[in-house]
Design a protein around this nucleic acid. Structure first.
Lengths: 271, 271
DNA sequence: CGACGCATTGATACGTCTCAATGGAAGTGG
DNA sequence: CCACTTCCATTGAGACGTATCAATGCGTCG
């Protein structure tokens, strides 16, 4: 989301059955010129160590809205970072397409398995996105040469499942308004930490997607947005979002494990 | 749960403030004599490779009911396997003690970080439990000697966060009965795969614990148990559980990602 | 046996889902 | 460029399910 690099392309009626190429390799990702260099993992790597971007052989891939970078069951030979757009990671195993994560620019897609193994998740572009890919084999080779990269690698895997647990605590036993407020303040925190404007942005995903992410119905999500607007915390006009009080938004969702919590521990335990 | 090795000890009024020792090291775990040898990870290791149990220097520790093996924030220098009893793993970061996992005999406690790092979870005995511990440092040394152990290690970490995602899909957007049925059929599957009787067992944890695990209220959990009994799927007498129809239990929770799903894909998508 | 904690059950309030209709934004074709 | 179409978001009224509060029943353990 935010700052899509090109104008959205004309879209056929059905997202899934377009005859335009599903994804299109553009060019080698030039990390030196990328605005996310200081934020993304390969970028940090190439900045801090003598590893050149070329050595990582990063490819930058374009994925049209509604199309998949990969689907559950496919082998993944690389790990990926989102350069622009927005990608939803879905778990199709239980029938309905349940969304596990929304990936924002500058973030890594969920690292599931180190080496070549079947993916459990599908990665689908919510809006036209550009993704940088680093092949595992290449990465291993670089790790062997530069030990500093290996440290990053360990952290990578360790952090991998963490997001799911945070989503769990955001959802479990919480009301709809808490969930939506938590979702928004989470987005806020992540946008901010990536250097994007955090108070005002465009939601790439539909209400339906947000609903499936939070375990609600799209109507309920919509109502919560309206309610937040009524309380003066938010301004909404379709996909355009403006957060008027981040503090209040945080207060409404005690679940925001990410940002700093103003609420003292004692007060929360009193609930 | 199931087959507690010794009679439960006398318990003071408050779980947290007993003056008896919190945990007590018993003896070196003799893997050769352990009934879970073929099931547990260190057991398999010592069976398949020339690694002796002594080499892994497994300690077996007793944890009284209501006491913690470790608490969030402490450094963990070992990974653990549950030999008997039942342990709840809790995430205290959001104020209320939210339960992330119930560990059953023969299962590993959630592996959070490979090396010495602060634990994000607390591990609390739901009933008196015996836990085997393998220090990471020792394990690393063994890995260096026997490559077959390293393979197990990789799988270990990869599987680590998986349970949380399964819990997420069990809870999100599902009704109370589905959740409880899913919880029970999940227990069923796990008991069976460990070689325990799967249709009839004792729930070590309270209704309150189950409720916090599933994001419900204890009264609701109780009502669901009664409802399942009314439908002839279950027999309940307090903590004693008897599953009359595993098939029907599975059908009631489409969420059981673990066992084989009878419901065909098409039917589920129709929902 | 008696006391306590835990589980069960009931009545009610509240919140979310459901179904349905309206409104508005984005994209299409003349 | 404008009117048209379509998809998506919003809003409303009602049904349903879970939380809540309270009382009773029962196992567990002293």
């Amino acid at each position: 989301m935010q700052a899509r690099p090109y104008r959205r392309r004309a879209r056929a009626g059905n997202d899934e059955d377009e005859d335009e190429p599903m994804m299109r390799e553009t060019r080698r990702g030039d990390c030196e010129w990328c605005g996310l260099r200081r934020v993304c993992f390969p970028g940090r790597l190439t900045a801090e160590s003598p590893v050149g971007a070329a050595l990582l052989s990063i490819r930058c891939v374009r994925i049209a809205r509604g199309h998949a970078l990969y689907r559950a069951g496919e082998r993944i030979e690389a790990f990926h970072m989102l350069r622009s757009g927005c990608i939803k990671e879905t778990d199709d195993s239980d029938g309905r397409e349940s969304i596990v994560n929304f990936c924002l620019p500058g973030e890594l897609l969920t690292v599931q398995n180190a080496a070549s193994a079947k993916s459990q998740l599908s990665s689908i572009a919510v809006e036209t996105s550009f993704v940088c890919a680093v092949p595992w084999r290449v990465f291993y080779r670089v790790c062997a040469q530069f030990p500093s990269a290996t440290g990053e690698f360990i952290k990578l895997i360790a952090r991998s499942g963490g997001g799911t647990r945070e989503l769990l605590t955001l959802i479990r036993g919480r009301g709809a308004l808490e969930r939506v407020a938590g979702f928004l303040s989470n987005l806020c925190t992540r946008m901010q930490s990536r250097g994007f404007p955090a108070r005002e942005f465009r939601l790439g995903m539909s209400r339906e997607d947000i609903a499936r992410y939070l375990g609600l119905r799209s109507e309920t999500v919509s109502r919560c947005f309206s309610e937040l607007a009524r309380r003066g915390v938010l301004r909404v006009r379709a996909k355009r979002i403006q957060i008027l009080s981040i503090q209040e938004m945080r207060r409404l969702s005690i679940a925001d494990v990410f940002g700093s919590l103003e609420t003292p521990m004692a007060e929360r335990e009193a609930v």
